[in-house]
Amino acid sequence: MMNADKVKNLIVAPSPHVQTTQTTQSIMRDVLIALLPALLVSTWAFGWRVIGITALSVVCCVGFEYLIQRFVVRGASTVGNLSAAVTGVLLAFNLPVTIPWWIVVIGAFVAIAVAKMTFGGLGKNPFNPAIVGRVFLLIAYPVQMTSFATDAFTGATPLAAMKFSPVFAGAELGDLFIGNVAGSLGEVAAGALLLGFAYLLWRRVITWHIPVTIFITMALFAFFVAWGRGWTGAALWEFPMFHLLAGGAMLGAIFMATDYVTSPMTVRGGVIYAVGIGALTMCFRLWGAYPEGMSFAILIMNATVPLINKYVKNRRFGVK
């Protein structure tokens, strides 16, 4: 009866026979799309050079990964999964618009060659490559990395201004939200980054736990500091808001702290990790040598992730 099917070459595999349509590549593509609004706002604020720096950074990151994979690792090409492109954009977003092009190349090399490929590539790097690149540049080229003066903006970033002034003079929170301030490429427009956050949540790329916990931790920290300093009135809520909107808080919390590879595997672990990032960031900002501390905080908490993964486990079903 079924002679035709006897000849048929059936496919056999263990269950399940359903796979998600999500792939590494689609996830990375979604991250790139989520970064787009911030790129546009940044271009509007700083001019066309933004596009140039971002493009250079992406090309360098992808190029280094391709070359290393091809000639050192000698494995199949991995640039197609777009993770190197994401690193490139994130690295560019952490640079000031006046940065010389050769520093971008060095940053990309450190991010990809040192922080990512030496550990075995995507999925195995303990630290976020873009942050390693940025921190390396910040220490190696402190002058170029902190020159934020352009035609549009003079002087220091809001965080730096705050750091070196003895009193809290209030902040233009509206400017911070739309990106009308000095700063690194991607960290100036809190509103655009939040739009990207919403997109990532909608696409189920990340969950809300890590970014929101970082925000809450930073806000509470700032509130208690303001309160401890005896401030009253508007400053009590403006000071926390300022810290959330200024500097790399948004970019770091939404796009870099949530990096799959370097964040904990469980929601509870993620919350612990996020509290650590929020608190450390505020400590660095208030009492550290640099005006900004997000990158350092994320790097330090990256280092604790294996420990968190070891000790913070999901509750097993049926176990109290």
């Binding site: 070459n9 059936l10 496919i11 056999v12 595999a13 263990p14």
Partner: peptide, 22 residues
């Protein structure tokens, strides 16, 4: 001759515990 195509993890132990083989 092969009569079907195995599409699971490339391991004899996994394939053998699933079915007769290719």
């Amino acid at each position: 001759p092969r009569t079907n195509t195995y599409d699971g993890a490339r391991s004899c132990a996994v394939a053998a515990s699933l079915y007769a083989g290719e």
